[in-house]
Design a protein around this nucleic acid. Structure first.
Lengths: 192, 192
DNA sequence: ACTTATTTTGACACAAGTGTCGGTTAACGA
DNA sequence: TCGTTAACCGACACTTGTGTCAAAATAAGT
């Protein structure tokens, strides 16, 4: 048999690069095949369609994020937990951009795609719920204000992940900075 | 002569709806023609291409935003100015989504498109600069913390506009709420 | 009613991406 | 070394959106 020309790591990496670079609609097999130096039809040996490839990629990266998030389960205060999670989310900040592509995927292209998308949405909801719960807990320990609905604070938190890191700071320092602004606000008054 | 079937207000309105609904790539003349109940080729009588139509729409809405922003020029403190501007930006929150479509437009499709995009980028930079300047001023009057770079705070400010208003609050109350969280932070400690 | 100027239209040729399939290539074991 | 077979490839038919153009439709002036 012929030696594999396609390396799965490469395939996932290039898929990510192209998705971020060209967007969901701009991404197609011809482009990917060129990057991987294989014929376009070869990719069909592994994935039946663009939709299946993209959802497979999404599941893959989402699993990595979930694993890393749950690795820090036993942690100090809810507030510190929120801070650590922010650091991970920012490290995987592609996910947020990728997540926004989900509505563009044609669910009806195959049953596999449909169930992958369901799985992704479920996982996304679960993450969201985790944050909301942590915020609720932090309200009880009085680390977070109680006069704003937790659902709103959760949305603020998630949106903060998308703040463009134009200075290309390393993601640790960057998430530190963002969390500080998020927590203390632009006024900058600190808790005693 | 035949009575105009196309109303320009309708055209802009449907263009906006479709852009937000389907995204830049999902938007095309066939779809728009259906919505307007005209033949697809009719639209070409007014705009040479999708690119020209979309940039025309963008310029249009950007002008409205600019007009409204400058209407409140003579205003109290820089902080209040930032708050009022936030209210306007949230009212025109489509613009931020629309702005993100600019890189997807094929600049080379016509010289008109090219200059429109330049115009838009310029205007965007100008808005950004306005916010950065106001933040600088607010730092001097000690309304805003000085330990975070203004460019970072400006990015935080702009990103806040995109926080999804899922509860469909009216945009005045919503912008009030968001600005409060932005300014006081999730901890919620107020200035004396 | 006829002419004229303007707007609208459907049809055509073209471009780009999709999915499939018969055939080719090349590693490996007998 | 030679047959087997997984992996790869090029070509074909199909779909969808694009831009153009000659012809048809329509309102208004004479």
């Amino acid at each position: 048999m012929a030696k594999r020309k396609i390396d799965f790591q490469d395939l996932m990496a290039e898929t990510e690069r192209l998705l971020l670079e060209k967007g969901y609609d701009g991404f197609h097999f011809k482009l990917l095949a060129n990057r991987l130096n294989v014929a376009r039809s070869t990719i069909y040996e592994y994935y039946a369609s663009k939709e299946e490839l993209v959802t497979a990629y999404m599941i893959n990266i989402m699993n990595r994020l979930t694993a890393e998030s749950e690795a820090l389960k036993p942690l100090a205060s809810p507030l510190m937990h929120l801070k650590e999670l922010m650091q991970i989310f920012i490290k995987y900040s592609q996910i947020h951009q990728i997540t926004q592509m989900i509505p563009l995927i044609n669910r009806d292209s195959s049953p596999a795609v449909k169930s992958s998308i369901d799985r992704l949405s479920e996982e996304h909801t679960r993450l969201y719920q985790t944050i909301t719960d942590l915020i609720e807990k932090a309200k009880q320990t009085d680390e977070i204000r109680s006069d704003i609905p937790s659902s709103v604070l959760a949305r603020v938190y998630f949106t903060a992940i998308e703040i463009p890191n134009d200075d290309a700071m390393n993601h640790r320092d960057w998430s530190e900075l963002i969390f500080q602004v998020l927590y203390e606000g632009m006024s900058g008054t600190k808790r005693s």
